[in-house]
Design a protein around this nucleic acid. Structure first.
Lengths: 152, 152
DNA sequence: GGTTAAATGTTTGACTATCCAACAATTTAA
DNA sequence: TTAAATTGTTGGATAGTCAAACATTTAACC
């Protein structure tokens, strides 16, 4: 068996590195996303925010940031942009005057659904390289990795 | 079945998004790498460069950049740093006076091998969440995804 | 009830990664 | 021999991430 690619480069040391392979594969799916949503003016990060708010209306910015595991300071510009696109709106929370409750506008709901369909069909392109049930298996394995990141 | 995590957040729309899961899983392995190599003053990107040169001594900067699918302008600072760490050296190419041939120093070889062992054992931590043969299966599936990024 | 501690959104700055366009020197192709 | 392509490099633009600080507001506590 060979560790060379078509250019004759030996990848031995990276061949079994899951970190490297995951990164490369993630970049492939990033391209898929970009190809599907570039004209919508959206990024993967913004899509994940929309996806969270879609199923969890009324969440605060901090709640969304912890749900997606990003710093809450990064939410400011993101929500600003989504608000300028008129797909998300900040509503003043009644019981906590520090925070906002985030909601999708009607336009935002349709936008998110359309985006989800486009990304979904974009990802489907890779199903042909997977055997029966492999996609579900991959999702499950990735979940196991993600959930066990902290403890030993 | 529930799409909620422990915080009661509904992840429905991201639950089956391979792009999202791959990103999260990749971040987990990035942490593994960082935990294993932070004190060595190295990043995942620099490690991948060392890994390529280790098995392919004499490559030019451009060859390494195409092997790793990064812009060749990004190699300059990277090789500068690796040279300052005295693990890589640029040698003037005889047949092409434009380019350098890259080699690991003796220190660089030991450094790369030690790094590889540390990353490898770091990744082993996640084997306990995998069934027999799942790791090899995952690597194979990721390869299929990566190799088929371009064509349809 | 009054003081202390914590949370929220925000701004700012630093840092990194990535990409693209240019450029001089050099090699290759026509 | 002239034109086109390649190599390393620089600089600028962009985006993502992170930490520290701040005012406002809420929660905890004795």
């Amino acid at each position: 068996m060979s560790n060379d690619d078509q250019n004759g480069i030996d990848y031995s040391m990276l061949q079994s590195r899951l970190g490297y392979k995951l990164r490369r594969a993630q970049l492939v799916y990033f391209d898929v996303f970009f190809e599907a949503c570039a004209q919508e003016g959206i990024t993967p990060g913004l899509f994940s925010i929309l996806a969270i708010i879609y199923h969890n209306p009324g969440l605060t910015q901090s709640a969304v940031s912890t749900a997606l595991d990003v710093d809450r300071s990064a939410m400011v510009a993101a929500i600003d942009k989504l608000e300028s696109m008129e797909v998300v709106e900040r509503r003043k929370s009644k019981n906590d005057r520090r925070s906002y409750a985030l909601y999708l506008t009607e336009k935002g709901k349709e936008f998110t659904e359309r985006l989800n369909r486009k990304v979904s069909t974009g990802e489907d392109r890779f199903d042909k390289f997977m055997k029966e049930g492999e996609r579900e298996w991959l999702l499950d394995l990735l979940d196991r990795i993600i959930e066990n990141r902290k403890g030993n």
